[in-house]
Design a protein around this nucleic acid. Structure first.
Length: 792
DNA sequence: AAAATGGCTCTTTTT
DNA sequence: GAGCCATTTT
């Protein structure tokens, strides 16, 4: 098809010029290419979403492809919603309603509901999240009498998780070592529990959908023919299972289009494999490759800063992002003394922007890890700036919400044992541990007798009749049983929100919380109210589509929703991790914590090796979110994870061209005069800090930084004290003076018999104090203080 | 049976 | 700093 044949309907997507109403040449080519495989490398801010929506609109409106024959997979539900919304404007609701647009997980769940019989699932299967999975595994470990110390349930789960990501289920598991022998047992028992509870976890969703789509039987055939056009967004972040699913679902068509940017691949730790997008054209003969390289989003200075960072990445698909946009202001790099100082600066700037008339939802604050958000939040609250935080402790993970959800899930699916266990004594109704373990035993016993699993719920009646219990326990159990039965009856005719309200009332949970009359219980009640409100929102949304909201539908949505999906479209400053920022853009971006070991992040745990390449891409993603203004902050000293960390500016800052960056320091940082004392902080006594000076501490201007590099830095080289560069290690030191543990502080020069000289980064007090020390030529190591010697 | 306390560990990013 | 667990106290 010729590009000219395609008439672009007018759209209004709220994007300002210079993102004009026409597509540029590669964009149009991508939107119009409808025959055969296509891979689009879409640089940051190059109008990717627009291409995808136009492409789908083109298929439906011009090529008359029935919408239900099109599958579009997105990374988050939010992205799916946005895409649908834009498409509604292009081709109308009648068309978009039947499109398959969703995340891998949501799409799999939808398929599994539709073909639940073939998948061997009950129609009302529930999806277990991480917490539920842990609960199941804890039970399994107890049942099998496994030593939890030697085989932590978390580790077993993570082993199982990585197996499933490779596409192997319990039946396919081949133990490789002694740990695996235990894992194998747990894997099997875990799978059995899940089956008996009619539950699936996140990995199962994909795995089971895949099994279905690859199967030789009728349903498999049907699934492989179901979609004529398959489109995958954020393709750089798919893992092997997801890719196999895509291949299976597009087995009968060559019309597969994938869109991604290998530079923005940031989910390797979750199994994402960049090689999949890089190899796509080899996997699919006859593939067209289109590159979108013009950035419409950011100023030239921001684009140049981003390019500086990504230029050093290894193994890139060759491409060069460029922009016609104006230079704009310089990228400001601000040195702060501590995380409080940093937060004060950030919030001060946010205030300024808002006073200048910038809408708060055009301002975002990014950080590498959630733990950084607390201080920012505190200062935001103190300054009365409306903010919303994406991630952290999720709303749905709060105890009261999980309790209510567990009630709902037990009602929908009484076989869900972990849910039942969670709420059987909430509010307290005299069903204690002893009674619950009797119930467990009874369920196990009955199960053995009939040769299949019996749920706790179904074991209640037999247990009560068995007369093994005291009168009080019997009464309590019967009461609970009746409560659930009544609620199930109620649920048949009520909407999910009505059910939730009824649960709170007839379970006595609400009353119990009211009786508590503490700040905490007030908060919980408030959250529950908000929660019911969110169910109502869901119901309205579904009603708008002409459907009826179901309990199952709601439960599924809750479990599969990404944190980013909950982001409200209200004008508030957004605080989030860089991962959360993927796919978003803001006029003003403040990127915090730009220090070595924070970003790039390095865990205190030496076993957990970071991936420097991925950190680099993550930094690239962060920088490219900004449209007009980018401010990057870093601190000398950061109190995080309960101890102090000493930071030097991130290596990524050095990679940005000097002519697009301006360096400065906060007032507090400057007045600290080369020391990292935060004078507000009493824990930092004078005598402790004066003995040591931070190598990067002299002043905060670019001049200073360029002309007086820290001792460990040689022009033209990276910092040498890293383990991922050619190490220049200091010699082991013999002797050395004994060290007084009480005098040890951050910045202390110490020596170690094997690692040589080093500088103390942080100290964990305790019975056996441990310090994190950066020895020359080594990654920071955790060392018991008693092994350290004084260096001077 | 429930609440309170103290000690322990872990501390990335998420569907 | 927070969450989890085991123990003690009421």
């Amino acid at each position: 098809m010729e590009v000219e044949d395609f008439e672009f309907p007018p759209i209004d997507d709220g994007v300002e010029p210079p993102f004009v109403a026409e597509l540029n040449e590669p964009q149009a080519a991508a939107a119009a290419h409808v025959d055969g495989p296509l891979v689009v490398f879409a640089g940051a801010g190059s109008g990717k979403t627009r291409v995808i929506t136009y492409r789908i609109a083109n298929l439906c409106a011009v090529h008359s492809v029935p919408p239900y024959r099109i599958l579009a997979v997105t990374f988050t539900n939010k992205a799916a919603g946005e895409m649908k919304h834009r498409l509604e404007g292009l081709i109308g609701k009648d068309m978009t309603r039947d499109l398959w647009v969703g995340t891998f997980h949501a799409t799999s769940a939808k398929l599994l509901r539709q073909y639940h019989e073939a998948a061997g699932l009950s129609r009302s299967f529930v999806v277990y999240d991480d917490g539920d999975q842990r609960a199941v595994m804890n039970r399994v470990v107890k049942e099998l009498r496994i030593d939890e110390k030697r085989y932590p349930p978390r580790q077993i789960l993570s082993r199982i998780h990585s197996e499933k990501q490779e596409g192997r289920d319990a039946a396919d598991f081949i133990p490789g070592n002694y740990f695996d022998d235990v894992v194998a047992k747990c894997f099997e028992a875990y799978a059995r529990h899940m089956r008996e509870a009619s539950a699936v976890d996140f990995d199962d969703l994909l795995l089971r959908a895949l099994k279905l789509a690859e199967s030789k039987d009728r349903v498999g055939e049907e699934l492989r023919r179901k979609f004529r056009y398959v489109l995958v967004d954020e393709f750089q972040d798919v893992n092997q299972v997801q890719y196999r699913l895509v291949r299976a679902l597009s087995a009968q068509t060559t019309n597969i289009c994938v869109v991604g940017d290998d530079d923005q691949s940031i989910y390797r730790w979750r199994g994402a494999d960049v090689r999949i997008v890089r190899n796509f054209k080899h996997d699919h003969p006859g593939s067209e490759v289109i590159k979108l390289e013009q950035n419409y989003r950011s100023t030239k200075n921001i684009v140049d800063a981003a390019l500086g960072v990504i230029r050093h990445a290894q193994d890139r698909e060759p491409k060069e992002l460029w922009t016609d946009n104006e230079k704009g202001q310089l990228v400001r790099v601000v040195a702060a003394s501590t995380e409080r100082d940093e937060a004060a600066f950030v919030v001060g700037h946010v205030r300024e922007l808002i006073d200048r008339g910038v809408s708060p939802d055009e301002i975002a604050v990014f950080y590498r890890v959630h733990a950084q958000s607390r201080v920012l939040e505190e200062v935001m609250r103190a300054e009365r700036i409306a903010y919303q935080i994406v991630g952290g402790v999720r709303f749905f993970e709060r105890a009261e919400i999980k309790n209510l959800l567990s009630y709902m899930r037990v009602i929908a699916n009484p076989a869900s044992d972990v849910d039942l266990e969670r709420i059987i004594n909430v509010p307290a109704r005299k069903i204690g541990e002893t009674t619950v373990s009797r119930l467990q035993a009874k369920a196990g016993e009955l199960g053995e007798r009939i040769g299949k699993g019996v749920s706790y719920f179904d074991a209640i009646d037999p247990l009560v009749e068995s007369r093994e219990l005291g009168a009080a326990a019997r009464k309590a159990l019967l009461g609970f049983h009746e409560l659930i039965k009544d609620l199930q009856t109620f649920a048949k005719t009520a909407s999910p929100s009505e059910l939730a309200a009824q649960i709170l009332e007839s379970s006595g949970y609400e009353e119990a919380l009211r009786a508590e009359e503490t700040d905490e219980s007030e908060g919980r009640l408030f959250n529950l109210e908000e929660f019911i409100g969110s169910i109502q929102e869901y119901e309205e949304e579904v009603a708008a589509l002409g459907d009826v909201a179901t309990l199952n539908g709601y439960l599924e949505r809750v479990t599969l929703s990404a944190q980013i999906d909950d982001m409200k479209d209200v004008p508030k400053v957004v605080l989030m991790t860089v991962h959360g920022a993927k796919g978003l853009e803001f006029s003003h971006v403040m990127l915090t914590g730009m220090e070595e070991d924070m970003f790039p992040f390095r865990s205190n745990d030496p076993d957990r090796k970071g991936d420097m390449e991925e950190e680099r891409r993550l930094a690239y993603v962060a920088v490219t979110r900004a449209r007009k203004e980018l401010i990057i902050t870093h601190t000398e000293l950061r109190n995080i994870f309960g101890s102090m960390r000493l930071g030097s500016p991130s290596r990524f800052l050095r990679d940005m061209p000097t002519n697009v960056v301006e360096n400065e320091a906060t007032d507090s940082r400057r007045s600290a005069g080369g020391r990292f004392i935060d004078r507000d902080r009493q824990s930092w006594g004078r005598d402790r800090s004066e003995s040591w000076t931070h190598p990067m501490s002299a002043g905060g201007t670019r001049r200073d930084r360029q002309e007086s590099p820290p001792p460990s830095f040689q022009p033209g080289e990276r910092y040498v004290e890293r383990d991922d560069e050619a190490p220049v290690r200091s010699m082991p030191v013999k002797g050395g003076r004994a060290l007084d543990p009480a005098a040890l502080h951050i910045g202390s020069q110490v020596s170690h018999s094997s690692f040589g000289m080093g500088v103390v980064q942080s100290i964990d007090e305790g019975a056996d104090p441990t310090a994190t020390v950066r020895f020359t030529g080594w990654a920071p190591k955790r060392v018991k203080v008693r092994f350290l010697k004084s260096a001077d």
